[in-house]
Structure formats: C-alpha cells, structure tokens
Design a protein around this nucleic acid. Structure first.
Length: 883
RNA sequence: GGGCGAUUAGCUCAGUUGGUUAGAGUGCCACGUUGACAUCGUGGAGGUCAUUGGUUCGACUCCAAUAUCGCCCACCA
C-alpha cells in the first residue's frame, strides 16, 4: 500500500505547488541542443497592461498542449512568451488616468508622459503573466520579451531603415483614416466598417453664367466646404454639355470646374459627384487625375477649420446640420432621404473615422505581398482550418499601402530626422550631426511613433535576437506553428509572414492554427460593455485550471466559435475527479515492490490483454489526431478510454483478482492497472497538466517528472484483436443481462443463476473462463453452461446474444406478459436491422461494386441477426403457448 | 455587391478520407449508499442529420440550388 491521495480531487491544493515545481526545475527552459530537433511556438504577445480573457485562455491552452506534447516526444520545445506595448490602447489608458488627475499629455510633455506610461506599464505589466501561469502555461519565462525592449526596438529601427533604403518605406501626403478621438492616423485594418442608417442629400449647384443647375448627391454635406470640382461620367448624355463649364458652390460661392471621369457611376444618385480631394479617397484620386489641388477643411479634432468660412469651429456633425439647414433655406436642397451605408469606425474607440489628407509614412505593400502569396501557393504555409487560406490570399491580392506612422508617443519613435533649413529627410538610428544635404545642424526628429503591429510583425525573429546572428535564431527559427484568433489574420499573421520573408528569407511558421471566438452561453461575444465576460481566473478558482483547459479544447473544432457553459466546466471537473479516484483506487491496491517489477506477458489474463491492446490503440489515435491538430478529438479519445474502458470496465473486472487469493493473478492485475494508468497520465498530461503530474508524483514507478517523461508510442505486438473480440462478447453479454433485469425491475442485489446455452465451444470456454465477470458485473451467483435449452422451463428471463442464449430462472419475479412485451421489443429492433441488411444484400449493385470486406461484414451481420431472431421468436412462442 | 461559416437528441456540440444500429456532455425518467468516485454507478426515453434535387451499389459525409442565422471583405457619392 502506497501513500494515499486525498479523498476528493481538490485542484487548489496542488496546482500552484505543481507549477512552482516545474519552474524550480527549469522544465520550461529551451536551449540550443544539436542532439534534438527544435519545436518552436511564438506566443502571441498579449497587451502588456491587459488582463487574461477567455480568448487568451483558449489559444494559450492550445499552445501549451502542443508544446507539452512535443516536449514529451523528445523535441527541444521552445515556447517564447512576451508582451506587446499596444501603443494606441496603452496610451489611451494613460491619457485617461491623467485626465482623472486633471492633467494632460500636452502639459506633461513627451518626456513626462513617457515616464507616466512606463510607470503604468510597470505597475500592470506583470498581471497577465501571472494569470497565464495560473492556467499552467509551460513557456520559457526566462526568455520573456517586450516589444519596447532595447533589443526589439533595435530590430524595429533596423527594419525601418532597411525598408526605407530599399524604397519600401516612403513619406507621402495621402488620404488616411483619421481618428478624431485618438488624434492619430490609423491603418485600414484598424477601421471597422459598420452598416449605418444615415441620409443622402441631393444638392443643386448653380452653373456659372447660366440659369441651370447640376445636382449632386452626398452623405456628408459638410465636406462640400472642401469641394474643388463636380464630376460626371464622360459617357453620360445628360451632362455632356456641362463638362468644362463652371459650377458655383452654394454657401461658399467658390467657382469649381465640372469635369468628366470614369470613376462616376451613372446609375447611382444623380450621376454627378462633388469632388472633395482632401476628404475622400476616391475624390483624392479623381482630383489628382485632373490636377485640381487640395483644400483641407477640418482640424485634428474633426471641427471645421479656417477654410470653412462661417462654419469654422463647428464640430463636423454640427456643421452638417447647419449646412443642411442653410442649403434648405437658400433653396439648394433638392432631396433628403434615409440611406443605409457603411461607415468606418476606429477599431479601438469606436469613433467615426474621418478620411483626411495627411502627411504620413507608408510601407509599400505590393513588393512585399507578392512573395507572401507565392509562399502560400507553394505550400510553405498552411492554415488550419484550410478555408482561412482564401482570406489570406484575398487580402494580399487587394492590399493597399500600410500607413505606419502614428501621432502617439508610446511606441517606437520613427528613426527619421528632418533639416529645419532645407527640409531634407534623413533616416538613421542616431541623430545625424549635420544635414547630409545642406550641412545645417538645425535638425529635429520626427515626433511620430510606429504602428504597434510594425514591431509585432517582427516577433518571430526579433525575440530570438535578430538582427544579431546567433545560435538561437539559427536553431529555433523558423517556428513550427502559430496559434491565434482568426480576427487577427490581417493585423498580425500576414504582417509576420511578409516581414519574415523580407528579413529572414523564409516564412516564420509552417502552420497557422486559427481559433474561433469564445462566446457566452447565449452566443454573444464576451465584452466589457455587455458585462457578459467570464473571467478565466474565476473559473480556475472554482473548478481548477485543468477543467477549464479541457472545456476550452473539447466539443469544438478548429476555427469555429464556441459557447462557454459553466456546466461543461463542471462536467470536466467531474472527469478530473473520476481520474483522481481511479488513481486512488490503483494506488490503494498497489504493492510498492510489485509496482517496480516488469510485467510478465505470459501471466496476462484476457482482460489484461484487452486493456493493453486498447490503450495501445488509443495512443495511436490520440497521437494521430494531435498531428492533425484535431485537439478536441484527441482529448475525446483519451476521455472516453479513461471513463468507459479503464474505469467502467477494466477496474470493475479486475476487482475480484485484487480481493482474491491468487497472488500471481493479483500482482499481474496491479501491474497492468499501473501500466495503463501511467500511459493515461502521459496522454492526458498536455491537456490536464496539473492533475496528471500530481498523481504521477505518487506513483512508485516514476523516475522523472511527467512533464519531461516520454510520450507513449504504439506497439504492434500489443495489439490483440482476439482479446478485443472476446471481451466485446463478455461485455455485450453483461449489458444484455443487466438490461433484461432492469427492464423487469429486478434489483441488482437479487443474485441469480445464469444458464448459458450454446453449442459453440469457444463461447463455452470463454464463459467458463470469465465466470468472475458475470458474478461481479451481472449479479450472478451460479453459472451453468448447457448445450440444450429443451428442459429449461418458461419461468426464466432470457437474453439472446450472438451464438448464445442466457436464461435466468427467477420464477417468482418474472411476469410472463411483461417478458413477452420485452421480447417483442427485441424482435422489432432485430426486424428493422434485418430489413436493412437484407435490402443491401439483395441489391445487385452493392454485391458487385462494394468492396468485398464491406459485403462480408453485411453477410456476417445477416447471419447473426437471423440467428438471434430465431431464438427470440422461439422464446416468444414458447412463452405464449405456456400461458 | 462579393466571400465564408453554421443548420445533427430539449440545450450545447462532435462525427477526420462516403459503408457505424448517427455519438458525447448536459437535461429528463427509473433503479441503486457491494470499501476508487453520489463530483458516482446501472438501465431507459429522445434524432426522417434545415429543405429540394443530383452523383453513387451506398450520402450526415460529395455536388447544385433554396431557406434561416452569423461572420468577413468592398471606394459606389
């Protein structure tokens, strides 16, 4: 008897202790080891000041499963952790904090603000890592990186400079998305489009020198203050004679040309479009083609600027209202209709984005997108599930240049300097002494910082020390798999791919595993504003990290959203408890000396061979499924085996041996129980690392920690189909007997004689051999085997099996009518089956074209069912006639 | 306007290349405290796999339409 486990599973008692044990022993560490193959995963860096939510819990659980499994398989497994500075989001939080203190960014100045931001980062920066630790993640914490680290910042500058020198980064005056609340430019990817109910107004512009008008349509009338032309389609007969003439902008009285451009859709609106080149991307293009100049009419906070005349100072929506009123009053408003259209919002603060002309820095995307597309087409990059490949391709094929400058302070400042005297641009890591063009020493650095995603795009190699050439980079890069949410493909996945190809010459990872969203029980997105978020830490606290992890990876296939139910967590906690108690049972019955002895195969009994064969198959199935990233199915394989086969059948079958007098048989049972338990713990470890390690630590046979033990492998010689067939007969007999007894309401405590009637010698042997199964599991006291049933009376329950009938004499308890009714139900079931099988076998096409083995299987079924049907009918007749 | 996903037991979901008596968890009903576990055991009820066609000897699985729901992308003022 061995030191016992606690009576009930209590994850709180050991989870933290086990995590500490792993950390103290350095099991998560990875280092260059030429003896081993590397396996690398880069953890998507969470926002440094963020908190763990279910999305993190999901993708980190998946990563941890993969890394633990590969570590056990003998790979040098590196899981690289770290955090992201999240420029716009962190800056907003700090600004808000300052606001509460009555301070502002501008008051503090850049230096002062950055001090505040670092203080904030240091205060909240550790939170998410501690939360991840609760989940059990086995990443190499010694390698933790932060996107604003010195090394990573160096990499960012390096890439910027390289791309600039290659002409892939440029500064340009173009239409960008401006967030008037965050007061910065944002990239296209950071704009969420939302269908919004607005209005469309038709406004007539007088034609100069004529008593005519041209009517345009717009959804943003305030932008007319910046109109520099009216455009029509050159094919449009309605307006042919107006092209080349001049329109007079109402309210403003500016003279603007009427131009012809293919961009205009004759079918839409009035077929005439106002052109506002500084406030609309299409108008910008049209304007450029016709060389009509620029006129910006808005400030950074979306109020009208000095170019807006009497509307100066008004907010954009106030200006819209006033302009519509004025147009109406002056008779220019022709029509006003409700109109559904898509409006861009700032992904972070939800403010309506204003397209606006601005001087910003851009990455030229086409030359970078091309090799990224090729890599995918050449199969160097796989998506799981595959369908996301299409999204990747579509985005890259339609990509536009990436606006990377942000009017923020928290982030990587552009390594760009300007000459105050001659406006020369100098890109360099350090501030140049003098202007490279005019020699002036009157230089200043660009105040802008880079898009956060510019630095995270480099994550797979910057974290390994790039641009320095080192062993780590050589060994661990490229990485093996990236696990992240599908909502981040554009922001991050694609940018890592083209950045890696550009800087490293190869893709950063082979596989991209995309997770779905974790939703609440009603299918809604978990969000702060709805207050429907479930805190993973609360769940861990109540049910343990293992139960949470199991819940997140089961009952769901890759890329699909899932609903989160506490009932499911509870069920998985119950599973952990089941395993806990099974282990407790094994240990209670295990002799310490026996535990370390090898199994003598010749002493194995039928159920031993069966369970060994079964675990062997499960090892194969689970491993294959993991290889296919079918994590949920792998988990299900293991779960079913543990609960149904190991606990419900094997442990129950083996009990008489453990309590019996045959010492050798008892010891064999102990060894097999332990052997299977060891393999169960290994298989389940990646999914439920805590409970498995805790139980493992109680096994007398353990040599080293479970986390670094060897992943089990399939052995051909352990597979035993013969034992599986035999056991499946025994189990179906037991089930049949239990079923009949319960249907007839005979309590399990009422022991009975079982009379097996069969002429099949093999079946006889098996029943004889397996007496104890029936005694223990089918409430039998005596077991009799007969050739012939002719002298058995009718006062029996009868169970029809394959090649065998069981009679249970329970004279006083058996109600004949009820028994007939029960057998009639059996008959109906068999009838349906027979009909199906006969149908198949009488179909000539089936016989001709189906594979032989499939036909043979159906023939076997037919024989079996016919045989069983005969017996059931005989029995029914016999009972009826004896009434 | 394009693209994608979902539709399977009351509920939430699996079902891996077409051949299973279509599964699980949960819920429901009945019975059960034999020393691993009531966070349990045993048995049961419950599904014409959204609809309609097609391919095939054979379709939950492949193809095409339809319907409903959801998501993503897109410059139509």
């Amino acid at each position: 008897m061995i030191e016992n486990l606690a009576k009930t599973y209590d994850p709180k008692e050991f989870e933290d202790r086990i995590y500490k044990y792993w950390m103290e022993n350095g099991f998560f560490k990875a280092e260059v080891n030429k003896e081993k193959k590397p396996f690398t995963i880069m953890m998507p860096p969470p926002n440094v000041t963020g908190n763990l939510h279910m999305g993190h819990a999901l993708n980190n659980t998946i990563q941890d499963i993969l890394i633990r499994w590969k570590r056990m398989e003998g790979y040098e497994a590196l899981w690289q952790p770290g955090t992201d500075h999240a420029s716009i989001s962190t800056e907003a939080k700090v600004v808000e904090k300052l606001k509460k203190e009555g301070k502002s960014k501008e008051q503090l100045g850049r230096e002062g603000f950055l001090e505040e931001a670092w203080a904030w980062t240091n205060k909240y920066g550790g939170n998410i890592n501690n939360q991840l630790k609760k989940l059990g993640v086995s990443c190499d914490w010694d390698r933790e990186r932060f996107t604003l680290d010195e090394g990573l910042s160096y990499a960012v500058e390096e890439v910027f400079i390289r791309l600039y020198n290659k002409g892939l980064i440029y500064r340009g005056n173009r239409i960008i998305n401006w967030c008037p609340n965050c007061k910065t430019a944002i990239s296209d990817a950071e704009v969420d489009h939302e269908e919004t109910e607005g209005h469309i107004w038709h406004i007539k512009y007088p034609i100069k020198g004529e008593d005519k008008f041209i009517t345009i349509a717009t959804t943003r009338p305030e932008t007319m203050l910046g109109d520099l032309a009216v455009a029509v389609n050159p094919q449009d007969d309605r307006y042919k004679d107006l092209v080349g003439k001049t329109a007079i902008l109402p309210l403003v009285n500016r003279e603007i040309p009427i131009i012809a451009d293919d961009y205009v859709d004759m079918e839409f609106g009035t077929g005439a479009v106002k052109i506002t080149p500084s406030h609309d991307p299409n108008d910008f293009e049209v304007g450029a083609r016709h060389n009509i100049g620029q006129l910006k009419i808005m400030n950074d906070d979306a109020t009208i600027n000095e170019n807006g005349g009497i509307y100066e100072g008004l907010d954009r929506y106030e200006a819209r209202k006033r302009i519509v009123e004025d147009l109406k009053a002056q008779g220019y408003l022709v029509d006003e209709k409700k109109h559904l259209h898509s409006v861009g919002h700032c992904e972070r603060c939800k403010t309506t984005v204003e397209p606006i002309i601005s001087k910003q820095w851009f990455v030229k995307m086409e030359p970078l997108a091309k090799p990224a597309l090729e890599a995918y087409r050449e199969g160097k990059l796989n998506f799981i599930p595959e369908r996301f490949g299409k999204i990747y391709v579509h985005w890259l094929e339609n990509i536009k240049d990436w606006c990377i400058s942000r009017q923020l302070w928290w982030g990587h400042r552009l390594p760009v300097y300007y000459c105050n005297d001659c406006d020369e641009i100098m890109v360099s890591r350090e501030k140049p002494e003098t202007c490279t063009k005019c020699g002036s020493n009157n230089l200043y650095q660009d105040p802008d910082t880079l898009d956060t995603w510019f630095s995270s795009a480099l994550w797979p190699f910057s974290t390994l020390g790039w641009p320095e050439k080192n062993e780590d980079l050589n060994y661990f890069f490229p990485t093996d798999v990236l696990v992240t949410g599908y909502d981040i493909i554009f922001f991050w996945v694609i940018r890592m791919v083209f950045s890696s190809i550009e800087q490293m010459g190869e893709v950063p990872f082979k596989d991209v595993f995309l997770t779905g969203l974790v939703r609440d029980s009603l299918g809604r997105k978990m969000s702060k504003s709805l207050g429907n978020g479930i805190d993973p830490l609360d769940v861990i606290n109540e049910y343990g990290a293992d139960a949470l992890r199991f819940t997140l990876v089961t009952g769901n296939s890759p890329g699909n959203d899932m609903r989160f139910y506490m009932e499911r967590v509870e069920a998985n906690r119950n599973f952990a408890n089941k395993l806990w108690n099974a282990a407790r049972f094994v240990l209670m019955n295990l002799d310490e000396k026996v535990a370390v002895e090898p199994i003598d195969k010749s002493s194995l009994e039928e159920e031993d061979r069966w369970i060994i064969s079964r675990i062997n198959t499960v090892i194969k199935e689970a491993t294959t499924n993991l290889e296919k990233y079918e994590i949920g199915i792998a988990a299900q394989n293991i779960y079913d085996f543990i609960w149904d086969e190991y606990c419900d059948w094997y442990i129950e079958m083996v009990k008489p041996r453990l309590y019996g007098d045959n010492l050798s048989s008892k010891e064999t049972a102990e060894k097999v129980l332990l052997y299977v338990l060891e393999n169960i713990l290994k298989l389940l470890h990646p999914f439920m690392p805590y409970i498995t390690e805790e139980i493992w630590n109680h096994l007398p046979s353990r040599e080293k920690a479970l986390i670094i033990s060897d992943w089990p492998t399939y052995n051909r010689e352990d597979e035993n189909k013969e034992s599986e067939r035999k056991m499946s007969f025994v189990m179906s007999a037991i089930k049949g007997i239990r079923n009949a007894r319960q249907e007839m309401n005979i309590a399990p405590s009422r022991k009975a004689t079982l009379i097996f009637v069969t002429q099949d010698e093999a079946v006889k042997d098996l029943i004889d051999y397996g007496r104890r199964y029936f005694v223990n599991l089918a409430s039998a006291d005596t077991i009799i085997i007969e050739d012939d049933k002719s002298n058995l009376g009718d006062n029996n329950l009868s169970v029809v099996l394959d090649r065998c009938e069981v009679f249970i004499p329970l004279k006083d308890l058996v109600d004949l009518d009820k028994e007939i009714e029960r057998l009639e139900k059996e008959r109906e079931k068999l009838e349906a089956e027979l009909k199906r099988v006969r149908g198949k076998l009488s179909n000539e096409g089936f016989l001709k074209k189906a594979p032989e083995e499939v036909v043979a299987k159906e023939r076997e079924k037919l024989e079996k069912y016919e045989n069983m049907m005969d017996k059931v009918l005989q029995r029914i007749d016999s009972l009826k006639s004896s009434k």
